[in-house]
Amino acid sequence: MSEKARRGWRGYAFTRPIAGSTIPHRVQNLVLRTYAERHGLLFLLSVFEYHHDGSYMMLESLYENLPAIEGLLFYSLNMLPEGRAARERLYDAVLSSGAGLRFALEEMQVSKREDVALVEDIMAVKALARERVPAELVP
C-alpha cells in the first residue's frame, strides 16, 4: 500500500500575547507566509490557539492530522508550551508521525530528535530568566 503524499505546513498562531507582546493575527500570518515562500513550502491556513492562558487545545487537535501534512509552522518558538512534559508530547507527536516543526521568527526547525537539544537550551534560558529556585526545593 503506497503512503499518501504529505502536503503542506500548517500555520500555528496565537491570539494571546507572545513573550509579553500581542502580535496582530495579520502580522503573524505575514511572517508565516513570507517564511513559507522563502523556503519553498506550501503554507496551509493558520490555526489560532484559544486565548486563555496555558491553552494548547488547538495545537493538540492538530496531532491527529500530522501524518497527512509535512509539519507545523509556528510563528515563534515563544509559543511552545511552558512545561517540558507538554513539549515532549509535542516533539513525540510530530517526530513519530514523520512530520517536522518550524519556527518562522527564529528560522529554526526540528526535523529529528537531535534538533530538540538546541530548542530546549533556548527554552531553559528563557525560563531561567523568568524565575528563581522555588524555596520549597531548597532543603
Binding site: M108, L118, D121, A124, V125, K126
Partner: peptide, 17 residues
C-alpha cells in the same frame, strides 16, 4: 535581540542543563 531569534547558545554548560 532575543535568544533564538537573534542569538543562539554556543557553549551551554552541563550544570545549567
Amino acid at each position: 535581540k532575543e535568544l533564538g531569534e537573534s542569538f543562539l547558545p554556543v557553549t551551554t554548560r552541563p550544570a545549567t542543563r
